[in-house]
Simulated assay, not measured.
Amino acid sequence: MQLTLRAALQAILISALSTPTNVNAETPFYNPEYPSHFVSVPVVDRGVIAAANFAANTHTVIMVDVVTARQQIVAGKNYALCLRIKDKKMDAHPRLVMTKIYKPSGKPYQIKSWTRVNNCTSDE
């Protein structure tokens, strides 16, 4: 029993000592429980919908739907979304945009990019 506990404590210590310490503005903190890269998330995720609505409202367009959604957890969340949108005119044709939105913990959304695209292929 003591040997197993000792091995577990050694593993925890080694893990703690091997955690990267190169923190910068692009990675406000490092937490090994969360991926440091974008991962696909459901387009119906509450955070995705909120970020998409914020982006559409900021650009004064109508969001038709979220086509693809990816998320990165940092000190808050980054969203990379492909949205089908329309201008507010009745006869407007839908078009696609790729947008990146940052939601800092406890603070308002921030749009980092908004680009019209022909398709929703990933750039990362």
Rank of each mutant, 00 (worst) to 15 (best):
L81R: 00
V48A: 00
P28V: 13
K112R: 15
H93I: 10
L13C: 11
P32Y: 02
S40D: 12
D91F: 12
Q110K: 14
H37P: 06
A92R: 01
T19N: 07
N57L: 07
A51M: 00
H59R: 14
A11W: 07
P35C: 06
R116N: 12
R84D: 07
N78G: 05
A51R: 01
S113R: 07
A11D: 05
P42K: 01
P94I: 04
N31G: 04
K103P: 00
R70C: 04
V41Y: 03
P20H: 11
R116F: 12
L81F: 02
F29N: 14
S36V: 07
L81P: 03
A80P: 06
D91K: 10
H59S: 13
H93T: 15
A16Q: 09
M63W: 03
C120I: 04
V39H: 08
S36E: 15
A51P: 05
C82G: 08
V43I: 13
D45E: 09
V39P: 02
E33V: 10
L81N: 04
T27I: 12
V23F: 11
V41C: 05
G106K: 07
Y79R: 03
K100V: 12
F54Y: 15
N31F: 04
L83G: 04
E33N: 15
S122F: 11
S122L: 10
I101C: 01
L9N: 14
V23R: 10
S113G: 06
M63S: 04
A75Q: 11
Y30P: 00
